[in-house]
């Protein structure tokens, strides 16, 4: 209950802040729409030359792209703003005020900031998924939908964990922006099914930097394609990743509290 109240207080502040910059808000929304439009257009161009890409049809690839924007939207709305704030606060020294609050620091650090207009990406992503599914005339049973949601939640947990782990590095190295750029680089590979990449990269994206679980696997589950790996692996890896990242956060924090600046 308390947590909900805290999060809604932050959310309220975030909405106030965004609406204080209405002009920017409109510009950002427009940019979202254009970005996604260009990406869908790109797919259409590719598929005008071929009817299949590593076994994926246009509509299936669209669903995957929708999943990509959905996750990207969630990350940019709720996860990366908070975690980026940690990086800048550690540098400014104001992170101390987070540690002074009677709430677990990880909770506070990951729910503090929202960039509300990125919700547009979530909605556009959802729309693209819907269009793809309709054109596929896919039969979505409640069971399939539930599995899809489970897999998605696992994917988001994985993204969050990776992002959190990279953020935690700030307790050792004050400059970590480059690292989050590397994250974005890997994450961008998730616009396409991992099958299109050469073997070594596919392995890397499945087992080391598991982008495959974030977009390919959810898209496979809902479009009725044979999944790359056993689907229960997605939520399992999600949970393990969260636990590992939380543990790493505690280690980072204990370093911070042994010598903060």
């Amino acid at each position: 209950m308390r947590i909900l109240r805290i999060v809604s207080a932050f959310l309220r502040a975030a909405i106030l802040k965004e609406t204080a910059y209405r002009a920017e808000l409109a510009g950002n929304l427009l940019r979202s729409v254009i970005n996604i439009g260009v990406a869908v257009g790109g797919l259409a161009v590719v598929f005008s030359h071929t009817s299949e890409l590593s076994g994926w049809r246009l509509e299936q690839a669209m669903v995957l792209l929708g999943v990509y924007y959905l996750v990207q939207g969630i990350v940019q709305t709720a996860l990366s703003p908070s975690l980026n704030e940690v990086v800048s606060e550690v540098r400014k020294g104001t992170f101390d005020y987070v540690l002074l609050k009677p709430v677990p620091s990880l909770l506070l650090s990951s729910t503090r900031r929202f960039v509300v207009w990125h919700v547009a990406d979530v909605m556009l992503g959802g729309a693209i998924i819907a269009i793809g599914l309709i054109r596929l005339e896919a039969q979505i049973t409640v069971g399939i939908a539930a599995v899809f949601v489970g897999v998605m939640v696992g994917g988001v947990a994985i993204v969050f964990s990776i992002w959190l782990a990279l953020t935690t590095l700030v307790f050792w190295f004050v400059r970590v922006e480059n690292i989050t750029m590397i994250f974005q680089l890997f994450f961008d590979t998730g616009r396409y099914p991992v099958e299109i990449y050469p073997f070594w990269l596919r392995q890397l994206l499945t087992f080391v930097f598991p982008v495959a679980f974030i977009t390919t696997v959810p898209a496979q589950t809902i479009t009725g394609r044979e999944p790359l790996v056993a689907i229960w692996l997605a939520p399992l890896i999600g949970i393990l990743a969260l636990l590992a990242a939380a543990r790493f956060w505690r280690i980072g924090l204990s370093r911070y509290t042994s010598a903060s600046s």
């Binding site: 805290i6 309220r12 502040a13």
Partner: peptide, 23 residues
């Protein structure tokens, strides 16, 4: 030398956040 308030918002809005955080 270190501030905790939201820079772009009136302090009252930051206060509400602290109110929730401290219950």
């Amino acid at each position: 030398q270190r501030q905790q308030l939201f820079w772009d918002l009136p302090a009252a809005d930051s206060f509400l956040v602290n109110k929730a955080v401290f219950g």
